[in-house]
Design a protein around this nucleic acid. Structure first.
Lengths: 201, 201
DNA sequence: GTCTATATTTCGATAGAC
DNA sequence: GTCTATCGAAATATAGAC
């Protein structure tokens, strides 16, 4: 069956990204050569240059995938007005946070294990405004002068819990049904940040 | 004043490690050349080889510093017998966890930002048994079959909170007095994992 | 202990045929 | 779209003088 011109390339391009994601995560971005990626795909290094101008561009594309998902998430976190309203809205965003971690776990692991490579990427722009680091936006949220420190600590704690349970220590819970894990995490997060403001005792 | 033979070297060796720690953290291990390190110290690249046989050995020594501190911590986490006793002991270890994060923040950041480099280090042993990754021991604790899943999730959550507040998002709290931050974190952690076992309601 | 070379290797990137 | 061949640029590491 003849293949329409160009359609093969789209496939290969996707396979390159998938393979790069795995290798960059396992061995690290710098320790992964283009020869490694090409070899696993059964093509040669030179062929990669048909799809990506530079090695960095492969990482950049993976970065953008995470960036897009993360931007949406941060938009939601920022959708409530800075101040007590944002604190009140926070517990309802827990589901979104968990979903984000689960849906993007591979990309998050890639990012987590290659932070320095991603920072180099950010500096060597030809990216630009869109490149405001997600983490910077998050730190800004936590630095708000109109949210009590106590609440800001709890907001950070929330994210810490979710990251630890669903990403960093996820290996310890691989044989647990995701819904069960999510339910237990939810319960813990509710203790940490109850949906209704705690009444002064 | 004449310097006893060898004593100068000890000083320089320490300065190399300190500088490497800073540069590896800021720019990443792979992006930091020996020329970078030497240049900042006002010596040449070749001089580094008098103190370290390979570039990897510099990273290895920094790794060992963290490994030693982390081993002690894990010994304490494991000091209570696996099972409910360990859960009961956990809240009392919170202070130790916080202290560990604060005392080793630079090394932890180094590790966090260069995970892949450290894993390469672990594989290319000439390290060996002592090299049991700290994270692996921690995951083992969380995987215990004789601790209820609910408690294991809380144990992981505890670490997630402390890591997030004192390391990952520490920038958001730089202008907060450490004792105040620790007090608020403590309060949050108590909600997450009360010192006395929660009585069934 | 520190220097000036220089050797060695690896890798990203390009040129040009098919 | 993919290949072979090669260039050029680091960077690690070594040799040997001082």
């Amino acid at each position: 069956m003849p293949r329409p011109p160009g359609s093969h390339g789209v496939e290969t391009r996707g396979r390159i990204l998938q393979t790069a994601l795995e290798l960059f995560t396992q061995q690290g971005y710098d320790k992964t050569s283009l020869r490694d990626i090409a070899g696993r795909l059964g093509i040669t290094k030179a062929a990669l240059y048909y799809y990506f101008e530079r090695k960095e561009d492969i990482l950049l594309e993976l970065h953008l995938q995470l960036h897009n998902a993360g931007s949406e998430l941060l938009d939601e976190l920022e959708s409530a007005e800075d101040g007590p309203a944002r604190v009140a809205a926070w517990p309802r965003l827990v589901n979104r946070l968990i979903a984000f971690m689960l849906e993007n776990r591979e990309l998050i692991l890639l990012h987590s294990r290659n932070q320095s490579a991603f920072e180099t990427l950010a500096r060597s722009d030809r990216n630009r405004a869109e490149n405001t680091a997600l983490e910077e936006r998050f730190v800004q949220i936590l630095s708000s002068p109109v949210i009590p420190l106590r609440d800001r600590v709890r907001m950070a704690a929330t994210v810490g819990v979710i990251t630890e349970v669903f990403v960093e220590s996820a290996r310890a819970f691989t044989d647990v049904a995701p819904e069960e894990l999510a339910a237990l995490a939810h319960e813990a997060l509710a203790d940490l940040m109850p949906a209704e403001a705690p009444t002064a005792l």
